[in-house]
Each structure stands twice: as structure tokens, then as C-alpha cells.
Amino acid sequence: MLKTILSRVTQTIIVVFLLVTFVFFAVRAIPGNPFASDKATSPEEQAALEAYYGLDKPLVVQYFNYWKNVAQGDFGDSLAMKGRKVSTLISESFPVSLKLGLLSLFLGMGIGIPLGIIAALFHNKWQDYLAMVIAMAGICIVAFVLGPIFQLSISRPLTWLNVAGWNRTSDILLPAITLCFGVAAYLARLTRGGMLDVLSQDYIRTAKAKGVPTLQIITKHALRPALMPAVTFLGPAFAAIITGSFVVENIFLVPGMGQHFVLGVTSNDYNLVLGLVLFYGILMGIANLLSDLALIFMDPKLRNS
């Protein structure tokens, strides 16, 4: 177990390092500069701004300065939103993204896993086909199609639900429901695959032969190994939901991290983009580690090796 944690941590450090290095030079290679959008600034003022933010130094020096500052816990100032620190922006938007991501993940698990189990139990019957068509719908009818549909069909008839915004507690519901369908779809397909694999094993046949009720076979014998592929998927999926929810944040006006990222790229806000990417990288590592640990907990074979 310690070995798994160590190897995952090493991997995360390498990936985060490469990611930040790549993004550091990539954002600076994007044409334009962060101060160009300001109201008519003279070249002298631009130069002064660049000097203030240390952008006039050679790239390599900037690169090492960045790591030095990060090591001291300083992600720098936002270049586009003057007077705000990147760490403040992240600490404001991360809880929003986290709440949304967790809720949609749990909703997705609640829908997807039972759907996959039903599909596997009724393999090649109409229930199976129905479940798989629903799962395919979850993959194909994507967030920016679902979002407007939900706004129109759920929040308008129910007057107590806001169409968009992030002021009331109930505002989390619509974006979470929109996000959860994609997760549920993949989980359903993976759970079905895992379940079919397990159900063809000898020990399940033995259990059936002994006369164990079907429900008990599923809950006691089949479920744990069958969920392994789904759990492997959950780690990356969680990171993907948090990093990739630009669209849903855009539709429902959620003040999450995705908005900052899109704004940061379009306004050449180097520090903001880098800070977000660094944060995403670490988050991905943690999510993968959690799913590794869950796998170890679920599979005794992994535990002993």
C-alpha cells in the first residue's frame, strides 16, 4: 500500500512538473500580451507594468522565479484582474467547483451503477438494451444541449428554482444534474462490463448452485469485483469534472474555476492560468490516489502484493 502511494505521489510530482513547464512556456507563446487590453497605455507604461510583474526578464529567469515563488506559497498576482492574487481567486472558486463536482459525481454514481447492474443481470434482454440506449444518450446528449433543455423544462415550471446564477443553495441542483449524466453513462457501461465479467466466474455459479438468492449473490459476491473498472474510472472522472466543467459553468453562470481558466487564456493572464493548471495537476494526482486506495481496499489481491 505504501508502495502504491509512493509511486502515485512520484508520478503526480513528475506530471505536475511537466505540466507547469509546458504551460509556462505555452501561455507565453500565445500572441498578445496581458496589458494590451488596457485603456490606451503608452509603451513606457507597458514597460513599467512588465517590469513590475517581472515579465521583462529572460524566460528562463522568469521560470525559475515562478518555482521559487510557488515554493514559498505565492502563486503571483493576477495580471488581468488588477490587485487580486491568484491564490485568492482559486480559493474563492475552488469550493464552488468542488461542491458541484462532488454532487454530480454522487448523482452519477447513484444513477449509473444501478443502471449498469440491471443491464448486466438482464444481459441481451430488453432491459439491457434500454439501459445501454440510456447510457448512450448520456454520452451523446451533452451538457450544452441538456443544460438549456433543463433550464426550460425544469426551472421554468418550478418557479422556486433559478434558471441560472449562484445565489441560493438550490442553484447547485440544475448544473449538478446536467453534469451527472455523462458520468452516469460511462459508469453504467463500465459497471455492466465488470458485472458481466464477474457473473461468468465459477464462484458465482457455485453460489447459485448452493441456492443463494440472486440479490445476495449480487451484494455479497459480485458487486465488489464488478465495480473495479468503475472505481478506476472515478478518479480521473472527478478531476475531469472539476477541470472540464467550463460549459456547465458557462450555461448556469456558476462562479467556478473553469470561467477563470477561459478568461485567463483569452486575456493572457499568465499567472492565473499557471496557478489553475498547477492546482488541477495536484487535484488530479489526489483523485487518482484516492481511486488507487479504493481499489486496494476492494481487492485483497492488490492489498497483499
Binding site: 506530471v15 511537466l18 505540466l19 509546458f22 504551460v23 505555452a26 501561455v27 500565445i30 478531476a239 475531469a240 477541470t243 472540464g244 467550463f246 481558466f261 477561459v262 487564456v265 492560468v273 493548471v277 488541477y280 495537476g281 488530479m284
Partner: peptide, 9 residues
């Protein structure tokens, strides 16, 4: 690496 982020950059 996060796919969408890299593709955007």
C-alpha cells in the same frame, strides 16, 4: 495531462 486545457492552449 488535462486534455481540454492543453488543447485550448
Amino acid at each position: 495531462m488535462p486534455f481540454l486545457i492543453i488543447v485550448i492552449l
